[in-house]
Design a protein around this nucleic acid. Structure first.
Lengths: 110, 110
DNA sequence: GCGATATTTAACCAGTTGGTTGACGATTGC
DNA sequence: GCAATCGTCAACCAACTGGTTAAATATCGC
């Protein structure tokens, strides 16, 4: 679990990878489509995806020659759970999505 | 903000730094006391603390020759907020925790 | 003032990261 | 069958990380 948190937080520490996760929030995507908005090589994106995959933040499934990437929220949830040790609970937060959108404005690229 | 998230998640990606944060959850601590349970040099811990400090996960205040380290929940809060876009995680009341920390301050200083 | 204590800085080292290019293995459509 | 598409792998590079030891800087107690 500690090693899991290592890889999850390390994966989240890169703005390109966070942007990829936010793209996947919209829909599952093929590797080539994930790469399209970024100004870097496909190989670089492929590496980023494997980092996300090893951290189990995404899952990947190959169908034909296309590899589909899909968000897997469990890992993010365990990171979030770890962080909850640093705060107290409060009832469901309806502003959450709004604040998320504000953060998204600051994301790099696409 | 994007750069902030970079440094916050990068800081959280190291198990030593996460352990330090959990120690600080109990109480504010001097650098030497933070270092005591770890099997590494004081200089290494000092570096870890400066990473945490640059990420604003802790604040540091020098009183005399002792530098006190104190949790600063704001940074963790923004990371948690970013993550909330990815699931129905329980949100965290970091403001409540901050009030809790302020109460702690009234406790007798070591 | 002086020795002890608290902490940071500098120089260094090995390993990791994030990117590149180019070659390669599968799969598809014609 | 064969050219195009999808994606990874290998080799390489510069920059960063996490650790070390040794020296430097403050401050404290006496």
């Amino acid at each position: 679990m500690a090693q899991t948190l290592d890889s999850i937080f390390a994966a989240l520490a890169d703005p390109t990878r966070r942007a990829i996760l936010q793209m996947l929030l919209e829909d599952d995507m093929a590797v080539t489509d994930v790469a399209e908005p970024f100004e870097m090589s496909l190989a670089a994106i492929s590496k980023h995806l494997s980092v996300l995959s090893r951290a189990r933040l995404i899952s990947q499934e190959k169908r034909g020659r296309v590899k589909w990437c899909k968000l897997d929220p469990d890992a993010m949830k365990s990171a979030s759970t770890w962080m909850q040790g640093f705060g107290q609970f409060e009832p469901v937060d309806f502003d959450g999505f709004e604040r998320f959108l504000e953060c998204e404005l600051d994301a790099p690229e696409p």
